[in-house]
Design a protein around this nucleic acid. Structure first.
Lengths: 111, 111
DNA sequence: CAATCATATGCGTCAATATTCATATGCGTA
DNA sequence: TACGCATATGAATATTGACGCATATGATTG
């Protein structure tokens, strides 16, 4: 690997994390949770996904520790154990917005 | 969508970005570039991937605007148009390290 | 122009992942 | 206990994405 290559740490672990975040419905779920804890039924309603599908994605997020389940009676509430993740998502979102402005700018300038 | 749901902006665009970053070899390429501009042959050498494969991933990154090609004679140099992306990767990496110490991502790591 | 080097692209294949349907499990209440 | 609601899981299918091979394109040099 090249001398001044940037150290991304464990590429494998990073990509595992990104893979989880790369699924639109999983992102939707994370965003619909926000900083609150919500029962699965809420998530199903706000994301408009099938129960099976929500459960499937929640499992992936849960096993990765990105969401934490907590039983309350018949319901299971899910929440983010670390809201810092939302900040990171926000950073990316902001970068993306700026980045796309530039891209549009370049496109328009060429014509 | 719920009232206090977190606004992740366009989930579709975000997930497209994460999908690009979720591929280990693409991450490798980005990291091997670092802040420098390098010809494809360099990338092939430092990542130890096949020429076809590097070209394949470079195309994806290029079309998303994550890398920028620049012809110099027979060579095509690639670089990050915005080094800020490396900072974001670094943030994630750091977040990951802190959470690794706890119990996060335990199952996905074994692979 | 021919030969060669650097890089890109079309195509086929294979593996991984998302989605649905049907069904199971766990909890609260009558 | 039996029943209904909330959530999870297994099997089957559909979709996506990575990779290699062969070949094409575009630039350099003789």
């Amino acid at each position: 690997m090249n001398i001044d290559a940037y150290d991304c740490g464990s590429v494998k672990h990073l990509s595992t994390l990104f893979k989880l975040l790369a699924e639109p419905n999983r992102l939707k779920i994370l965003c619909s949770l926000g900083l609150e804890c919500r029962p699965v039924s809420d998530i199903i309603e706000s994301t408009e996904l099938s129960q099976t599908n929500v459960s499937f994605h929640l499992r992936a997020l849960r096993e990765a520790g990105l969401v934490k389940p907590e039983r309350k009676g018949a319901f299971i509430y899910y929440c983010l154990p670390d809201p810092e993740l939302l900040r990171l998502l926000g950073d990316f979102r902001q970068w993306l917005e700026e980045h796309q402005k530039e891209k549009l700018l370049k496109k328009n300038m060429k014509k």
